[in-house]
């Protein structure tokens, strides 16, 4: 067999996954995406659920979860130091996602509600903070969680050095392409017109309104949206309530 010249053998792209505080749903989808991408040119160096996840030198760090404990902060520092490219994976990492709901209370109030007098001595930050606010992040894969297909396609683009074009159309775009029934027109609050798509409008397809897990679309037409709510007899108060779930860092409530 002909031997390949050593300079022509491509180096393996090393990938590490870091888990901060979260549900690890993104890691599960990433595991399936990585298994599909698996080739002689990709090596998973560290993945908590699969191999224990000791921080390792890597080309790409996928970071899921929000920064909630001091340990999260330390893990994130290791991800930055050990990797060439840092990718925020999923909404907790991107914009703190629904974990930012905790920030509506002081840390003390939240502790009192959940633990009463005996407090766990594990050091926490006072607020749930997204990875993008603390670390220098090269790419964001949005969603709660991003689908396996999406993680696979983002990673392919990043690995091939093609860069990632952020999806900048609202959820409504894909929803119309699918011909799903418009929930807003039925008087049901749906954030589709102002929220970043790319999710294939899965929630409205299944009869559930969009709650904005991917964040606001660039240049969201807020006034037009509020006007359309009025036309469909939906109160602005209801909108402010819904925006608490995933958009609390982007919409003034």
């Amino acid at each position: 067999m002909m031997e390949t010249h050593p300079h022509l053998v491509p180096k393996k792209v090393k990938i590490a996954l870091y888990t901060l505080t979260c549900c690890e749903g993104c890691a599960l989808n990433a595991a399936i995406a990585l298994a599909r991408l698996s080739s002689p040119y990709i090596k998973v160096e560290s993945f908590r659920l699969i191999d224990g996840g000791k921080p390792a030198e890597a080309d790409i760090a996928l970071v899921e979860g929000a920064v909630i404990t001091l340990m999260d902060k330390e893990l994130l520092r290791q991800a930055e130091n050990n990797s060439k490219v840092v990718v925020a994976l999923g909404s907790c990492s991107h914009n703190a996602g629904l974990l930012a709901l905790k920030n509506r209370f002081t840390h003390e109030e939240a502790l009192e509600t959940v633990y009463g007098e005996t407090r766990p001595m594990i050091p926490h930050l006072s607020k749930a903070t997204p990875v993008t606010s603390i670390a220098k992040v090269d790419y964001v894969i949005p969603g709660c969680p991003p689908s396996t297909d999406e993680i696979e396609s983002y990673l392919t683009s990043i690995i091939l050095g093609k860069g990632v074009e952020e999806y900048e159309k609202p959820v409504c775009w894909e929803c119309r392409l699918k011909d799903s029934d418009c929930l807003l027109k039925q008087g049901i609050l749906c954030l589709g017109p102002i929220v970043k798509g790319g999710c294939k409008a899965r929630c409205p397809e299944y009869g559930k309104p969009c709650f904005g897990c991917r964040g606001l679309v660039k240049d969201a037409k807020m006034e037009e949206f509020l006007e359309s709510l009025k036309e469909n007899n939906i109160s602005e108060k209801e909108f402010r309530e819904a925006a608490k779930l995933y958009l609390s860092m982007e919409v003034s409530l």
Binding site: L20, T21, I68, T69, M71, D72, L98, L99, L101, K102, R104, F105, E109, A110, L111, T113, V114, P120, I122, H124, A128, K208, F211, E238, E241, A242, K244, L245
Partner: peptide, 22 residues
């Protein structure tokens, strides 16, 4: 030493029909 996300505190802020999804 897992971080506390405080679901039991913040589910009070969530519209009822969305609570199971959250």
């Amino acid at each position: 030493d897992e971080g506390i996300r405080f679901f039991e505190a913040f589910l009070t802020e969530v519209p009822l029909m969305e609570a199971p999804v959250i």
